[in-house]
Amino acid sequence: MNLLTKDPNVDKLSLSNPVHFLALGFGSGLAAKAPGTFGTLAAVPVYLLMMSLSLHWYLAITLVSVIAGFYICDRASKDMGVHDHGAIVWDEVAGFMITMIAAPIGVVWLVIGFALFRFFDILKPWPIKWLDAKVHGGFGIMIDDVLAGVFAFLCLQGIVYLVG
């Protein structure tokens, strides 16, 4: 299964296992370089499928994705024997979904949201970096990206307000 990476820990996961498939961001987490960015790219089609939903349904699906992510990331991490392995990118998928809550529809907004989420996910300003270091398990894997998504959401909505 380890087609893209050369990491033996990834061999412990299987794309045929639904939990592993989601944890690996539909396989995007297997990228040898920048799996978090590829995980966020994998979230784009998810967003495109959801963008025309009512806010109520968008929020409900996003909430389910975050809550399920605690289990998905925890299970994959335990199956690999490595906490927060780079190949586990469901947290990026959920974080990007948060970023894009109530975003205007359009390529420009998609690109801005993507860039803002990656910025906060990579830079990890306080308290994201602190949470990333101190909180473990599935919740720990998810919480830094959830918060990066919230920061990116707030910035994106601020830009929408300023432009509109």
Rank of each mutant, 00 (worst) to 15 (best):
D7Y: 02
V108R: 05
L22A: 14
K129C: 06
M97N: 06
V64N: 06
L4F: 15
M1N: 05
V163N: 00
L162F: 13
L147D: 00
H85N: 10
S65W: 12
E92W: 09
I61Y: 13
L55E: 10
L55D: 11
T37H: 08
F119R: 00
A152Y: 08
G86L: 11
G36N: 09
L53W: 12
P104L: 12
T37R: 09
I159T: 06
A133E: 14
Y161K: 14
D84E: 13
L49F: 09
S54Q: 11
I98C: 07
F70D: 09
P35D: 04
A103M: 06
G27C: 08
E92S: 07
K129G: 04
F151N: 02
F153N: 13
A68P: 02
A60C: 13
D74C: 09
L22H: 04
V19I: 15
V150G: 04
L4E: 04
L13T: 01
G158P: 12
G140W: 09
L123E: 02
G81K: 07
F38N: 06
G158R: 10
G95N: 08
P125H: 08
A133V: 00
G164V: 02
N2Q: 10
S52R: 14
I88E: 09
F139D: 01
Y58H: 06
I141Q: 03
A31S: 15
